[in-house]
Structure formats: C-alpha cells, structure tokens
Design a protein around this nucleic acid. Sequence first.
DNA 1: CGGGTTTGACCCGCGC
DNA 2: GCGCGGGTCAAACCCG
Length: 261
Amino acid sequence: MMEKREIMENENLIGNVTFPDQIPTSFSLSSLFDMSCEDEKDSLGFMDLLGIKDFSPSVSDLLHIPLMAPPPRSTQMSTLVESSEVLNLPATPNSSSISSLSTEAPKDEQSIAVDEEDQENTKKQLKPKKKNQKRLKEPRFAFMTRSEVDHLEDGYRWRKYGQKAVKNSPFPRSYHRCTSATCGVKKRVERSSDDPTIVITTYEGKHTHPSLMMPRGSAAIIPQDSRRFSAAAATFAMPMQFAQSYYQQQQQPYFHNLPPS
DNA sequence: CGGGTTTGACCCGCGC
DNA sequence: GCGCGGGTCAAACCCG
C-alpha cells in the first residue's frame, strides 16, 4: 500500500491495532516489528512500555494490552463501526521529528509576535514569515483507520485551517489544528487512494490539555448526550491515548530539555 | 455576531 | 536556479 509505505519511510510503526466487534478492554497488537521499526530504540522503548522483556523482531504473536479504562459505550457502537484497523506510527528520530522536539519552540505564536510590525504594510498581501528559522517538526503519530467517516471524533476539538489536493490521489488532505489556545497540536486527515475505506490521520505534537472525552489515566467520561461519541470515537481515541503514552514513555530515556508544557 | 470552513495565494524545502 | 509539492495563512464566506 502506497500511503502505508510512504508513512513508514518517514515515521516508525508502533503497532497495528485491531478492534473486534465488541469494544474491548484490551486491544491487539499484531505484526508489530516485522514491519519497520528502523530505530531499534523505538521498538525497545515500545516493548518496555508493554512490559515485554524478550522480543525478537520476527515475532508475530498477538499481544493483548490492557487499557486503562474501557472506552465509552454508546448505543451506536455496533452500528456505526464494526471494526477498525488502526496503524499508528510515531515519528522516527532519523526523520528529525522526535529528536527535534526538545528544541521545538511554539513557532506559530512566536513568528506572529515577532513579525507584527510588518503587518500594516502587508495587510492583504503576503504575511511575512520567519525566513531563516528551520521548520522543526513535532513528533508525529499516524493512524490508518478503516472508517467511512473522514473526521473521526477523538475527544479533542479541531479547527480546519487548510486543505490540499494530494498528488496521485483523488482525495484531498485536510489540515486541522487543536482549538485549544495553548495547544499547538496539528492533525492531517486524508483518505487512502488505494483503499478509500481507510482514513489516514496524522497527529503532530502533543496535547497540553486533557481530552474532552478521556482524561488521562482515569475512566472515560461519558457525556449524557453521548451521541457525539460514536464507536469510531471510541476506537480512535484509544490509539491516540496509546500513542501519547508511548511517546511520554519515550521522552524519559531519549529526550531531554523538554519545554514545560 | 462569533466561530468554523473554504479556498486561493504564498512560503519553503527538496530534488533535478 | 528552477519547478514541484506539501504546508500554512487569512480573507471571504457560511452557519447557528
């Protein structure tokens, strides 16, 4: 699969998460490391997270990982989504994504503040951007989700800020930013051209605030009118939580000078 | 009226 | 240097 390969060249694969019909209290990881964890540290860190000591890259056994809490249930669960296949792929150090995190600055706010003086004479024309500042990438996690809806509810609120046509794909890619003022997390959503039923969602950055739906480390909060939170929401939120917790684990041994959130 | 979306233009990195 | 493609901006528009 094209997109899959593309992503895997740039980002490491954490796991392939499959959700059964019933919303599980554990989810399965299969064919994890026979795919491509280019940096062994990543896979080992991941295994550490799972509490797995012995690991050979050829292992293809299913691993069942207990979740902190079962996802919220809603009456629509079984009807909306029967199952979801999710691949999540954290950024790789050699793509300079994760490793650059420690030097990452809130570039958006900064550049805006710095360039404010130029605004009057550029008004409706181009806005100045920082020129010599390298664009440093936040760590990224990509999920491939089999779903009919493009935008899966993940417990956060997003504002769409752009959309672009994707080369060799009839489906556009949309760009979203977390609406929380202090949170610079971005999200890209696109549909696989090879398999239109697969939605590829890439998260960039780390939320600095709790999810609306699943506060970290606690039981899920189910709103009274939980219509918003579909089965897709539940299945999608879990890998995100998982990825973030994986990433947090990784931060400890491998990353320093993390800016306080 | 405020917040979200659309969309065309611009910026930037990268490969040739 | 140039062109291409991905990413972002922001004015205009939409909608509740």
